[in-house]
Design a protein around this nucleic acid. Structure first.
Lengths: 227, 227
DNA sequence: ACAAAAGTGTTGTCTGTACACCCATGC
DNA sequence: GCATGGGTGTACAGACAACACTTTTGT
C-alpha cells in the first residue's frame, strides 16, 4: 500500500495551441504572460493540472478560461519533459491543440487576457519551448486533416467551397486546383449544398455548404483519405 | 519568483510498450508487477520520473532496466491522465513505445524481471489502462510504419524479403502479395542484397538483405509513402 | 523425380494531376 | 456590355491490385 511513497512529485502544466481560421490565414491564439518568469512575453495559454481533475479536463478548463468555449475539437499533442524547458523550475507540460470557429470567439475575452490571434506565418518569439509546440501542432494538424475532416471545426456552420479550399491551402501552405479540389470533396459525399448563396464576394454568388456528420462517421470506420 | 508556489504536484510515471518480432508474430514485453496494487498481474514495464531527469531520459532508463538496451528506436506515445487510472492513487503516466531486435534481448533478464514476450494476438488481461496503451501503440506503429521504414528496427541486421514481408503482415494483420511487395520495396531502393543466402527455410535459399540508412535519409526529407 | 520455398511480369483499374472555358450577375 | 469570381470536363500518367508459372536444390 505504501509502494508509491518516496516517489518524487512534479509540477504538471497544460499548454494549449488554439487554432482559428479567419478566411485567409491559419492563426493561433497567444497571450502575454502574466506570471514570472518571462512576464509580458508571448506565450501559449496554459495552466497547471489540479489534484482532482484529469489531464484532459485540465486542458478543457484552460481552453475554457481563455475562450469561454467548451465542446470544441481538442486533442493531446505531446508531453514536453525536458529538465530545463521552463527556466524557472522543473515543469512537465502536456500540450493540447484545439480547433475553434474564430467567429464564436468573444472579443471581450481577448483584452481581458491580453490575447491575440496571430498568423502562423508571422510567429513572434515565444517563451520556453512554445515555438516547438506550435510547430509540432501544425505538423499534427496537417496529418490529422489529411485523414479526418476536422477542418470543418475551423469553419462557420455554413461555408463556401472557396472558403474550404482556402483553409486547406492555409494548412498545407500550398495552392490547390479548384476543379480537382471540388471533385475530391464531392466524391467523399460529406458536405451538403444548402441552396443558399453567399453574395458578398462575387456577383454570381457561391453556394453555402454544410458538413454532414452522419455520412462522415460511416466513412470514418472504413478509413478515409481526405486529401 | 514565487509564482509556482501552491501549485499541486503529481506522481509522474512512465510505461513502455516494447515491441519485438520473432519472425512470425508481433510481440510485446510484459512483466508480472512487483508493486502493490495488483502485484503479480501482467503489466507494462514502468517506473517513475525522477526529479533530475527529463521525461525522455526516464523512458530510456526504464527501457534499459528491463532490456539492458539503449540507443533503440523509441517514441513517446501519449500521456494518460485520467483521475482513476491507477487504482491506488493519482498517477499520470506517459507511455512510450520502443522497437527492438528480439535477438538482442538477453533471456537472463527475462527471468530476473518476471518478463515475457507475449503475442499481440493473445493479450492477457493487463492492469489499469495498459490494454488501452498497447492498442494505441499498435495503431501508432501502423501509422509510423506506413511512412517511415522503422520496421527494420524489429529485424536482425540481415533479413530475407520473406521476413520483411511477414513483419508487415504481422503489423497490419493482413496478407500481402509477394510480387507486389517486393516490387514496392525494391522501388524504394533502401535495401541492399548482400549476396549471401539463408538456407534453413528452403532448398533454393533466399538472399539476405540489409537496410541502407543513407538512401533512406534522403527519401525521408522528400516524404515517403512506404507501404 | 519431387517437394518446397524463391523469384519474377503483365494487364486492367483507379487515382491524381494538369489544364481552359463558359456562367451568372451587379454595376 | 463588361468585369468578377463561380462552376464545370477531359486526357494523360503513375500507382496499385490481381493473378501463375519457372527456378533452384536437398532429399
Amino acid at each position: 500500500m505504501s509502494s508509491y511513497q518516496k516517489v518524487p512529485r512534479h509540477l504538471l502544466a497544460i499548454d494549449c495551441i488554439i487554432f482559428g481560421f479567419d478566411g485567409e490565414d491559419l492563426k493561433a491564439l497567444f497571450v502575454k504572460r502574466k506570471l514570472e518568469p518571462q512576464k509580458g512575453n508571448w506565450s501559449l495559454m496554459g495552466g497547471f493540472v489540479a489534484e482532482t481533475e484529469s489531464v484532459d479536463a485540465a486542458a478543457e478548463r484552460v481552453l475554457f478560461e481563455l475562450t469561454g468555449l467548451s465542446n470544441v475539437y481538442m486533442e493531446q499533442l505531446h508531453c514536453y519533459g525536458e529538465l530545463e524547458r521552463d527556466t524557472h523550475s522543473r515543469v512537465v507540460s502536456i500540450a493540447y491543440f484545439a480547433l475553434i470557429k474564430i467567429a464564436d470567439y468573444n472579443d471581450a475575452v481577448l483584452k481581458e487576457h491580453n490575447a491575440s490571434w496571430i498568423s502562423l506565418k508571422e510567429l513572434p518569439e515565444l517563451i520556453f519551448d512554445h515555438r516547438q509546440m506550435v510547430e509540432d501542432a501544425k505538423e499534427r494538424l496537417r496529418q490529422k486533416v489529411a485523414n479526418h475532416p476536422v477542418g470543418f471545426e475551423l469553419l462557420p456552420e455554413k461555408f463556401t467551397l472557396r472558403q474550404l479550399q482556402t483553409l486547406y491551402e492555409a494548412i498545407y501552405e500550398t495552392i490547390l486546383d479548384k476543379r480537382n479540389f471540388s471533385r475530391k470533396i464531392f466524391s467523399l459525399d460529406i458536405i451538403r449544398n444548402t441552396g443558399e448563396k453567399e453574395k458578398s464576394t462575387s456577383r454570381k454568388g457561391s453556394f453555402y455548404f454544410v458538413f454532414e456528420e452522419d455520412k462522415y462517421k460511416q466513412l470514418e470506420k472504413e478509413g478515409l483519405k481526405f486529401i
